[in-house]
C-alpha cells in the first residue's frame, strides 16, 4: 500500500475531563478512502474535530505527511492541507454562496487559484452556480451540503475529512452526495469519512473501522464486513 498520509496513534480526547476517545489508532494511506463507522455519541465528531484542530487531544499523536501535528490549531491544520467538511455544514449563513466559496479559498495559496477552481466546482455542482448570489441560509439541506463540500474542496487540501455527509438528507440527495464522493475518490483524493451506518460506503471504502465507545473494535475491508454479519449485529444493532 501507498505511504500513510495521516497517522493517528493512541489518541485520547474529551470534554471537561470526560474521555470520549480512548486509545484510538489508525492510518489513512495516500489516495485511499477510509471510513469510520459507529453509533451516535461514540466519538466520531470528536475525532474529526481533534484531527482538524478544533479540539486539543488529551494525549496521543497525530501525524500528517510525516510531521507531528498533534494539537495544532485549526487554522494551522488547514494551511498544511487537512480540510474538514464539518457535521451540520457550518456555513456562513448571512453570506452569499459565492462568498462562502471564497472563504473556502481564504488562504493565499488557494486564493490565487480561486477563479479557475471555482469554475471546476460549478461544473461539478451546477446548483451552486445557479444560487451563487443567494444567501447561504436560504439554501435547501442538500444544497447546503453541496456548498459545504464545494467550500472544503476550494481549500485545496491534501486530505478531506467528511463528518457524516449523509446526515439529515433525503435518500435521493444522499445518492447525489455519494456520487460526488465517488468522483472525488476516482480523482485520487485522500478521504477520511465517518458515518453512522455502513450502507453507502461498504463498497466504496478501502478500509473500514468500527468505533464503539471511543475505541476501534473491528477493522477490515467492506467485503470482510459483509462476510461477518454478526459484527454489525453486535455493534450497530444490524
Amino acid at each position: 500500500m501507498a505511504e500513510n498520509l495521516l497517522t493517528v496513534e493512541g489518541l485520547f480526547a474529551g470534554y471537561d475531563g470526560q474521555p470520549v476517545l480512548r486509545d484510538l489508532t489508525f492510518d489513512v494511506p495516500k489516495g485511499a478512502l477510509i471510513a469510520l463507522i459507529g453509533p451516535n455519541g461514540h466519538g466520531k465528531t470528536t475525532l474529526m474535530r481533534c484531527i482538524a484542530g478544533l479540539l486539543k487531544p488529551t494525549t496521543g499523536k497525530v501525524e500528517f505527511s510525516g510531521k507531528k501535528v498533534t494539537g495544532l490549531p485549526a487554522e494551522e491544520m488547514v494551511s498544511r492541507g487537512v480540510v474538514l467538511i464539518p457535521q451540520g455544514d457550518m456555513l456562513f449563513p448571512d453570506m452569499s454562496v459565492v462568498d462562502n466559496l471564497r472563504m473556502g479559498a481564504f488562504l493565499p495559496a488557494a486564493r490565487a487559484k480561486f477563479s479557475e477552481n471555482v469554475e471546476e466546482i460549478y461544473g461539478m455542482l451546477p446548483r451552486l452556480k445557479e444560487r451563487s448570489s443567494q444567501m447561504a441560509r436560504t439554501l435547501s439541506g442538500g444544497e447546503r451540503r453541496m456548498l459545504a463540500i464545494g467550500r472544503g474542496l476550494l481549500s485545496g487540501g491534501e486530505i478531506l475529512l467528511l463528518d457524516e455527509p449523509s446526515l439529515g438528507l433525503a435518500p435521493i440527495v444522499i445518492d447525489q452526495i455519494y456520487e460526488i464522493i465517488e468522483n472525488l475518490r476516482k480523482q485520487g483524493r485522500t478521504i477520511l469519512l465517518v458515518e453512522e451506518s455502513p450502507n453507502r460506503i461498504i463498497d466504496l471504502a478501502d478500509h473500514i473501522h468500527l468505533l464503539d465507545t471511543g475505541s476501534i473494535v473491528w477493522d477490515g475491508t467492506g467485503q470482510e464486513l459483509q462476510a461477518q454479519p454478526q459484527i454489525l449485529e453486535t455493534y450497530l444493532g444490524g
Binding site: L54, E75, V78, P86, M103, F106, R111
Partner: peptide, 24 residues
C-alpha cells in the same frame, strides 16, 4: 475585501472560520 469577509465569517461561525484558515 478578503479580510473583511473573514471578519464577517468569524462573526457568523467562529469554528468554521478557523477551519477556513482564519486566524480569529
Amino acid at each position: 475585501t478578503n479580510f473583511g469577509r473573514a471578519v464577517r465569517a468569524t462573526a457568523q461561525n467562529r469554528d468554521a472560520a478557523q477551519l477556513m484558515g482564519v486566524r480569529v
